[in-house]
Amino acid sequence: MAEIIRLTTPLTDKVIEKLKIGDQVLITGTLYTARDAAHKRLVDLLNSGKELPFDIRGQIIYYVGPAPARPGYVTGPAGPTTSGRMDPYAPRLMEAGMKGMIGKGKRSKDVVDAMKKHKCVYFAAIGGAAALIARSIKKVDVIAYEDLGTEAVRKMEVEDFQVIVVNDIYGNDLYEEGMKKYRRSP
């Protein structure tokens, strides 16, 4: 297995060009969180020519709605949600400069094509490993849409946040390739 790659945000094209499907990556820096409702608002802002609540250029969006934090904790458990629901919005955010997405599950063809075009990479975090993932989240601030509760946009400072590259900018897909490798014909 390939060695573990360490990345810091924001991501540059040079870094993204090197990433290949199956690469295990540890991210340190900033992640912005958004789910369905926040995506709709972000894209509405862009489409009406307004500024986003944060500078998205070079940044990674993490698809997550954390559980409430117990007293003394920075965050509650915070694992990835299904990315496919964000597919209608993702290309527009890539156009605005987004360079990475973290979630789980397959992306649509439109999203994969947009990733090639705008040089954006899709990572998966381990779905369901929310308590473990929370340990790599060091600071959390709600920066927009507080009314959305768990779906608000948060700025997360992370250290060695563990992900795997699912779609690189060359059109490859880990879900498809991984399955081919281990498939047994009946």
Binding site: G22, P66, A67, I126, G128, G178
Partner: peptide, 27 residues
Amino acid sequence: PVGKAVLNALKKNAEIAWHEKIPICQD
């Protein structure tokens, strides 16, 4: 190997959740 790593991570996750009385999953 990645599959094995995932299973070990899920075991570790369960241990943390049980020990700290926090949910296994945010959902």
